[in-house]
């Protein structure tokens, strides 16, 4: 950085669990370097001390689920030079996007003693559905390694190196034995974007799809593979409806499985 002024970083929270912000706090070793490279100007999860905007880089966690948040994200955008959406909520609506498939009024009446106190939207939507976003970092939660890469890239004015290919690539580089081929375990790795380091297959579990769809996900072909691993129709509907249920490719795969039906 040429200028003596350190760039200002802001971290914002919308409808989310705070897990992605924790990934940033988990950076431990790198956090000091980060604090040296940027002024952490707004990060309530870490400090109540707040510096006024505008901010050079805003990291936004969470989805938009309330009328208030729909207004607030406009303000965040207006005060941010670069805005990066982080995590499955901010990039696909999160697990709370399951509401998009249901009657929110009915759910509110069932769950809350005083539903009239609740002000909420019919749907949970990603940040990009409301304002222009400079980059979307996937994951539930995001990988701290990729998060640091994104921050470094924006500080250096270059493109972040965040591959959009499959989890299988990380899985094979790790030298894992494929759980689908060798054990018949259903795995979403072939259609899920890399980033986690293939954690679940490393522990003999199939991938759950936390990082959302790859660049060109062939969910139809994978659904055939999952069925041949013994997944039932309803299971297939559900496996695509988790953290990234709102991601278009997963939503379509789930809907296709629902339409096709199949044995329980």
């Amino acid at each position: 950085m040429q200028s003596t002024r350190r760039p200002k970083l802001a971290v914002w929270k919308f409808g989310s669990c705070d897990g992605c912000q924790l990934s940033l706090l988990n950076c431990e070793d790198e956090l000091l370097t980060l604090a040296g490279a940027v002024e952490i100007a707004y990060f309530l999860e870490a400090s109540t001390a707040v510096t006024e905007g505008p901010y050079d880089l805003s990291l936004v966690e969470g989805s938009v689920t309330t009328p208030h948040d729909a207004e607030r994200i406009q303000e965040v955008r207006a005060t941010s030079r670069h805005l990066v959406a982080i995590g499955a909520c901010a990039t696909a609506g999160g697990i709370q996007a399951l509401r998009n498939l249901a009657d929110v009024g009915e759910m509110t009446r069932t769950v809350y003693a005083h539903p009239d106190y609740i002000s909420t939207l019919e749907s949970s939507t990603p940040i990009a559905a409301h304002v222009p976003v400079d980059f979307e970092l996937r994951g539930c939660p995001v990988s701290r390694h990729q998060l640091l890469e994104v921050v470094s890239a924006f500080l250096a004015g270059r493109k972040p190196l965040v591959p959009a290919y499959s989890v299988c690539q990380e899985c094979k580089r790790r030298g894992n034995v494929c759980v689908t081929v060798a054990h018949g375990t259903p795995c979403l790795g072939p259609v899920t974007q890399a980033g986690c380091g293939a954690i679940c297959p490393s522990f003999h579990r199939g991938c759950y799809g936390c990082f959302g769809p790859t660049e060109t996900p062939n969910t139809a072909a994978l659904s055939d593979v999952l069925r041949s691993c013994g997944m039932s129709g309803p299971e297939l509907v559900r496996i695509f409806r988790t953290y990234n249920t709102g991601a278009p490719a997963f939503a379509a795969a789930s809907a296709a499985a629902e339409k096709r039906g199949g044995p329980r």
Binding site: T33, L155, C168, Q169
Partner: peptide
């Protein structure tokens, strides 16, 4: 129609040699 573009075939192939050269310097 069947191919997942998952890349498993290339990564298990003993002759495939393609690599990326990635900057990995971090924040410093």
């Amino acid at each position: 129609e069947r191919c997942l573009s998952c890349a498993n075939c290339t990564l298990v192939c003993p002759t495939c040699f393609c690599v990326d050269l990635r900057e990995a310097g971090g924040l410093d």
